[in-house]
């Protein structure tokens, strides 16, 4: 039974590693300027975690195989290194390993979160509400109209609660249910929650950020590849959470300008 146990965990460990080594299930290709560092961090962590995982399971299997059901007169043995050796080893190897990971990771994080967006980044506002995202572009005047929560009326599609009657800035604001952005242009995403907590996750863009009701947060990123991607909500927001999504269309500058004109005409 002990040998069966040893074999089982070795087999499980190897089978678990195969899909990872073969890249059977991996994140979709990165289309952001900052994502490469995250991916690199991920694969380094995978290497270190993978080795630790396999080593721990194999050693456990080996000891169980070797030291179980021994004859009654078999001699007990002490592990030569003793606890001190293990503790020092763990402190050095694991300590240095995780600290190194942590320090290298700082740069990947800072890229996205600590550096300010450049001055010419294009502002786009996203509003998350049960259970859809809506996007707002400031229009030709470059100014967003003010938000008036009491004016929100989804039936007549006043999604953001704009007041074009009194607010000139709001009149040319463009509201869309999909997010179009020009390729290779830095986007400054202003995140506003209408009701409860939501999140903005685009796998290809390597961005995920929660919306905080009552606190507008922002993100900045640059998409490098034209295409259509999914934006999904990852913060449990109610019964329609599973279906809360929108599409991100990364376009050439020309297509984007045309898109914006078309939206303005509607």
């Amino acid at each position: 039974m002990a040998r069966l146990f040893a074999i089982t965990i070795v087999v499980i460990a190897i089978l678990s590693a195969i899909p990872i080594l073969r890249h059977t299930w991996v994140a979709p290709e990165d289309i952001s300027t900052h994502g490469a560092l995250i991916d690199e961090q991920m694969s380094e962590t995978m290497a270190e975690a993978g080795i630790s995982f396999l080593a721990a399971q194999f050693i456990l299997a080996f000891f169980v195989w070797k030291f179980s059901n021994r004859a009654p007169d078999a001699k007990l043995k002490k592990f030569p290194g003793g606890a001190k050796g293990l503790v020092i080893g763990a402190l050095l190897v694991v300590g240095i390993e995780v600290m190194a990971l942590g320090l290298f990771g700082v740069k990947a994080w800072a890229n996205v979160y600590l550096d300010a967006p450049s001055a010419n980044a294009m502002p786009v506002q996203v509003q998350a509400g049960q259970f859809a995202f809506y996007f707002r572009y400031p229009g030709v005047d470059g100014k967003f109209g003010g938000l008036h929560p009491e004016l929100i009326n989804e039936g007549s599609q006043n999604i953001f609660g704009l007041d074009p009657e009194h607010d000139v800035d709001a009149r040319d604001d463009i509201v869309a249910a999909e997010m179009a952005i020009p390729v290779n242009k830095e986007i400054h995403l202003l995140m506003h929650a209408k009701d409860v907590g939501h999140s903005f996750f685009v796998r290809e863009l390597r961005v995920q950020q929660d919306f905080v009701p009552g606190l507008d947060v922002s993100l900045h990123f640059t998409a490098t590849k034209i295409g259509k991607y999914e934006i999904v909500c990852t913060q449990l927001c109610g019964l329609g959470h599973y279906n809360m999504k929108a599409y991100l269309e990364v376009m050439s500058q020309q297509d984007f300008d045309d898109w914006l004109k078309k939206q303005a005409g509607q």
Binding site: N153, G155, Q157, A177, K245, A246, Y247
Partner: peptide
Amino acid sequence: AKPKTIDMSKEPSCAKQHATPLTTESV
């Protein structure tokens, strides 16, 4: 007010049922 176009891109199975996009029906 001019009826506003409804963007259903979030729900493709519905969007494809409308050759021309729906507009708001409150007025």
